[in-house]
Computed example of a mutant assay.
Amino acid sequence: MKFPHIALPPPATSAALRRHRSTLRARVKALRSEPDRKFVNDFPELVAAVEASFRHEESMLELLGDACLHPRRADHAVILCALHRTAPRVESGDVGLGRQVADALEHVLTWQD
């Protein structure tokens, strides 16, 4: 699907992407502070939120015709693969692994800003 190119000022676009990413980081941070049982229950919701957030971000970049779209999609694919491989183990009770992945995810989301 090809979207029309829209011209938003780069600072406005960057601010919107940073705000969106900040919201996702806050969600990861909140999950990390939860007790183990709640962490296990909420981890799948975090994975779904990351998927939705990445889709939104990629749609914005596609609309803008941004050159970083393809490298960002590749990064997103790696992150989502790790989350999907981890999720069954977390749901089976491996909270330690889930917390390691959540820590790494928060750092990656900060780095990608």
Rank of each mutant, 00 (worst) to 15 (best):
M60Q: 11
V90W: 03
R21K: 09
A74C: 03
L63D: 00
G96I: 02
W111G: 12
D113F: 00
E91T: 08
G65W: 03
N41L: 13
C81N: 12
A7G: 04
L80N: 09
P88D: 08
S92E: 14
I6W: 05
T23W: 11
I79M: 15
L64K: 09
L24H: 05
R85L: 12
P35K: 12
V90S: 02
P35I: 10
L109F: 01
P44N: 06
Q112L: 11
A82W: 08
R27M: 13
R18Q: 14
A52K: 10
E57A: 13
L63P: 00
E45P: 05
S22Y: 01
R18E: 15
A7W: 06
A67N: 04
A87E: 15
M60D: 02
S33V: 08
K2N: 09
G93F: 07
E58P: 00
A102H: 03
L109D: 01
T23D: 14
C81G: 08
L8T: 04
F43H: 05
G65L: 02
R85S: 01
T110D: 05
D113Q: 13
V28L: 11
L8M: 10
P88V: 10
P35H: 06
H20M: 15
H20P: 00
L97D: 07
S33K: 13
G96M: 03
A104W: 12
R55L: 09
R32T: 00
L69A: 02
L64R: 15
A15K: 10
V78D: 08
D75G: 10
F39D: 07
E51T: 10
E34K: 14
R18P: 00
L83Q: 05
S22A: 15
P35M: 11
G96S: 07
T86Y: 06
S92N: 15
S22W: 04
S59R: 06
R72F: 09
A77L: 12
S59N: 02
F43W: 07
G98N: 01
R55H: 08
V78C: 04
R99F: 04
A104G: 03
P44D: 11
R32Y: 02
P11M: 01
L80M: 14
R55Q: 08
R18H: 11
D94W: 00
R27T: 09
V28G: 04
C68Q: 11
H107G: 09
A87L: 12
L63R: 13
P10M: 00
P10Y: 02
L8C: 05
D66E: 10
E45N: 14
R89G: 05
H70Q: 11
L80Q: 10
H107W: 03
T86W: 04
H56E: 11
D75N: 07
V47F: 06
E34S: 09
L109S: 02
P71H: 06
E57P: 04
L31V: 05
H20I: 00
F43I: 04
L61H: 03
E58G: 00
L17Y: 05
M60I: 15
V47T: 14
I79D: 04
A12D: 09
V95Q: 06
E34V: 02
C68A: 13
E106S: 07
A87K: 06
V40F: 08
Q100D: 12
